[in-house]
């Protein structure tokens, strides 16, 4: 029951993030909303891992490990997007 509750929370996070991604005009807010969508997807995946508990483990370690990789890749993408935004916001180059 409590696992399903987290799954539904993850689904709601995806929805809330998607709404923010579409509605906000500024890029930084879009980036934040995009991270919310990612958090929701990871949470849904974590619920799938928790449901697959077996062999004395509290969850299936394969999805858990893939979520860890996913969090890092999402961070790398966010960092690259942030650098792009920093360049877009103000030309530091002298002409």
């Amino acid at each position: 029951m409590s696992t399903t509750l987290f799954g539904l929370t993850g689904a709601a996070l995806v929805g809330i993030g998607l709404f923010g991604l579409i509605v906000h005009p500024t890029a930084l807010r879009k980036l934040l909303a995009f991270n919310l969508v990612g958090a929701g997807v990871f949470l849904v995946f974590g619920v799938l891992a928790r449901r697959a508990a077996a062999a004395g483990l509290a969850g299936d370690p394969v999805p858990q490990a893939i979520v860890i990789t996913g969090i890092v890749v999402a961070f790398a993408a966010t960092a690259l997007a942030a650098t792009l935004l920093a360049r877009l916001s103000g030309p530091e180059e002298e002409p």
Binding site: F6, F42, G46, A49, R50, A65, V67, I71, V72
Partner: peptide, 18 residues
């Protein structure tokens, strides 16, 4: 929430990176 899902490794990564 990740701790509550018994995924402490993910919780550590989420707290640090995410």
């Amino acid at each position: 929430a990740w701790v509550a899902l018994d995924a402490v490794d993910v919780a550590l990564t989420e707290a640090a990176i995410g």
